[in-house]
């Protein structure tokens, strides 16, 4: 029996600050919890943060840099998560790596990870320059993260164009920081607006959730402790869909049964 090939998934957004790294950390934990041997690779060499969100910043000895220079073995650089041993982080090296790192280097690192893991998540830097190109070089599929804001959607569209030219497929969308009340009042782009404009299948919706900030303060991703916060549920659902389960997507602006919600939906009726 041959094992399924390792899935190598780029997590990108174009615009910074929309929740790429938070998604990578939470999805990494959730996938590991659900039984996939998962590696998260911090490809944001300039502004690395994945270690911090996973609470692993004090346990880094070696990084991708030493692995590439062959001054250490991959196993020595990988930081295994204590509470979730199915998950390991390969930390980004020194920011000066940006000067010499090539797409081939990224492919070498990912090929090493592919020997040991079922899923590799690559946390991509913001922007569409060399950092993005390096990170994308080794990816086979992609998750584009955006928020329902004009600047984030525009930048996501740029990134999708680049992913298309690189032949990365499938590309799926995660819509982050959704505020159902604002959507209901038509003061925020609707879920269908964003999916129509970007023409991508929706992998998941994450509601705006204060618990995300609390969890980053602690360095414990929300998916780690199984609390019932809306964002934690959303991340777990995204992980399930990635693993091939069918989990229905609920548009939050179409859910409420109160009078306000019903009125809001009535006001969204297209008349022409």
């Amino acid at each position: 029996m041959t094992a399924a090939p390792t899935r190598i998934i780029l997590i990108c957004s174009g615009k910074g600050g929309v929740g790429k790294t938070t998604l990578t950390a939470n999805l990494g934990i959730a996938l590991a919890r659900q039984g996939s041997r998962t590696a998260v690779l911090d490809a944001d060499f300039g502004l690395r943060n994945l270690d911090l969100l996973l609470g692993l910043e004090n346990r880094i000895v070696y990084t991708a840099q030493e692995v590439l220079a062959e001054t250490c073995r991959l196993e020595q650089a990988l930081v295994k998560h204590k509470q979730e041993p199915n998950l390991a982080l390969l930390p980004a090296g020194n920011p000066r790596m940006l000067e010499w790192l090539t797409p081939e280097d990224m492919q070498r690192i990912v090929a090493l990870l592919a020997e040991r893991f079922d899923i590799v998540l690559i946390d991509c830097p913001a922007g569409i320059e060399d950092g993005f190109r390096n990170a994308a070089a080794a990816a086979r599929e992609a998750i584009v993260v955006t928020t329902p804001e004009v600047s984030a959607v525009r930048d996501a569209d740029r990134v999708i164009g680049l992913l298309n030219t690189q032949g990365i497929e499938p590309i799926q969308l995660v819509l982050n920081r959704v505020r159902p009340k604002m959507m209901l009042n038509q003061e925020m782009l609707a879920v269908s607006d964003v999916t129509d404009i970007l023409a991508l299948p929706l992998l998941g919706l994450v509601l705006e959730d204060e618990q995300v900030i609390v969890s980053t303060n602690r360095g414990e991703p929300l998916t780690l402790n199984g609390n019932g916060s809306p964002a934690a549920k959303a991340y777990h659902n995204i992980a399930r869909r990635l693993r091939g389960e069918t989990v229905p997507l609920i548009d939050p602006a179409k859910e409420g049964q109160g009078l306000r919600a019903k009125l809001g939906r009535f006001m969204q009726t297209r008349i022409f």
Binding site: D157, R158, M183, Q186, L189, D193, I197
Partner: peptide, 19 residues
């Protein structure tokens, strides 16, 4: 119009150009 409507219109315009 509601700001979401404006946002969608503005995005469609700018993306036609970007693309």
């Amino acid at each position: 119009p509601a700001s979401a409507t404006l946002a969608k219109q503005r995005l469609q315009l700018v993306l036609a150009h970007d693309r």
